[in-house]
Design a protein around this nucleic acid. Structure first.
Lengths: 307, 307
DNA sequence: CTGAAAGCGCTTACAG
DNA sequence: CTGAAAGCGCTTACAG
């Protein structure tokens, strides 16, 4: 009969919108757009729709978005909360609005339900792999933020370097606002002054900036420099050498977030089950982090192609 | 006083949600995520929020999304309509719901308001540039879809090749579902059988697949093969040679779409102003499409870096 | 100028 | 089992 009920009226009455709110750091980043895709998929299986926005790691932008989503009466929230915005965790708890934190956790809010990578373990995997491939002077490039998950990546990296290489890694921290400018200098400094033999890029975005500098410099990878990145990116395929990366179980984590949240929404009386849940990552090894031997094979192949 | 009015109740009364719906092909594609960003920005200046989704060029997925957005009572819609989904244009007109088509236009719906690139002119710019740089055997790689804007890209390319090079370009059309597999063969065929001296990738996504094959083959760009792409991508920076691309005026087009739409929403009595509006693109010339001379300079630089 | 009342389109508890 | 009525939280036209 071509009749569609008015969802607005329905929502007013039932006090339910069947909508989840999702706030990520940047939806144009493959890591977050994959999360959004899986969350959308899973939510729609439960009959929920997702509305989302990017906070770009800004506390103001985050709180503004959160208010918009709350005014729209979303039934629950999935949040990549930026630095210093933990206040919102407290507020959401007070108004009893179901939520779950993704990709982050907060020391000062240990009871907030959180779903994320086991970041310490991930870094440990990376360093073990690098050590096994003969790298002796690794460096890590991260971002100057106090986010707990980045700290654990750094701690895991540093501690494992000490254990296996008896040496601290070179640590480079840069400011997101001047990412490209600083990367330009850091790549040169790490190569020509600190003489690192390998670099680990701590996020997708850092990897993009770093690899583009390396591409411009025409440094041999892995011959001169081994490379491992956090997170997958389609762009890696354009790099001359296939890039090793630590893959997060994005689908599993996204689905875990949605099913936890919907359970909270539909059974508000039950005691929440998870507090902080960490998932193991998988190191996808490609040519960029294998030592000399393979880089010679590559040169042979180049020769074949040319002839 | 910490009081926030219930938007649901307000909407029920006023019959306005201050929400725009946006359907793109794929939000994880930089082209569309930029559009979404600018549309969000502009809409929020008018006090509107945007909710969006990806139809992935599927008519079913598109109609489903459209229905969800309509049930949510969005005030207006911005749509990248997929192939064969023109029926929706008619339906929206019938129920008198304001909308504007972006990045597409439809021959069989010439009165639908549409905002897009002047695709014919864009291809013309590209071919002129290639001809001026001495390329004589260009190829184009596009997708096997009947979308009008892709057809105009092809027509502009072909016609200008005939005019300036007295020769038709090599045309490769591939199926989006088997993009990578087909690209693998097409790049080889174009280089080794058809002996093209340059390739133009017709979308962002095609460019990614094509450039990653070229990176794996280790073909010299632009020495052996000149390259121009449609649309910007951060990933291009990881390619060994900076990539030339045709930049669409995304910000201008996005803002034009929003202001047209909001005007329609807030002044429903007025006669709509635009029907189809096409914007000129800008060719951003980098090293990937300059002829021999520059590729020699590059080799010199490589030498300097090595020493 | 102020304040009580009607009504947006649903759902649901309740009366018949 | 069926159907009329109340009410979700606003806005707005209208009475006082």
């Amino acid at each position: 009969m071509n009749y569609t009920p008015n969802q607005i009226a329905k929502s007013l009455k039932t006090n339910r919108t069947n909508t989840l709110g999702l706030i990520v750091a940047d939806i144009s980043n493959l890591f977050y757009s994959s999360i959004a895709k899986y969350i959308e998929e899973e939510a729609s299986a439960y009959g929920y729709q997702v509305i989302y926005g990017s906070a770009h790691e800004s506390r103001d932008r985050f709180e503004q978005l959160l208010n918009v989503l709350l005014a729209r009466q979303v039934d629950g929230l999935i949040l990549a909360i930026p630095e210093n915005a933990e206040k919102s965790i407290h507020e959401l708890t007070c108004i009893n609005k179901p939520f779950v934190v993704i990709d982050r956790k907060f020391k000062n809010a240990p009871k907030a339900p959180s779903i994320l990578l086991d970041n310490y373990d991930a870094s440990q995997q990376i360093v073990k792999h690098m050590a096994a491939n003969g790298y002796k002077r690794p460096g890590l490039i991260t971002i100057n933020r106090k986010l707990c998950h980045l700290k654990e990546r750094k701690d895991g990296f540093t501690t494992t370097c000490k254990e296996l290489l008896k040496k601290l890694p070179f640590v480079y921290e840069l400011h997101e606002e001047k990412l490209e400018e600083e990367m330009h200098h850091i790549i040169r400094r790490s190569l020509y002054e600190d003489k690192v033999d390998s670099l680990c890029f701590f996020t997708n975005k850092i990897a993009m900036a770093g690899l583009s500098e390396i591409a411009a410099l025409d440094v041999e990878v892995p011959g001169t420099l081994g490379v491992v990145c956090f997170d997958e990116a389609e762009a890696y395929k354009l790099f001359k050498t296939p890039v090793s990366y630590l893959k997060q179980p994005i689908e599993t984590m996204s689905k875990a977030a949605v099913s936890y949240l919907i359970n909270r929404i539909e059974h508000p009386k039950e005691k929440p089950s998870i507090t902080i849940k960490e998932f193991k990552g998988t190191l996808v090894v490609k040519e960029s982090s294998s030592k000399r031997s393979l880089s010679i094979v590559k040169r042979k192949n180049q020769h074949l192609v040319r002839s």
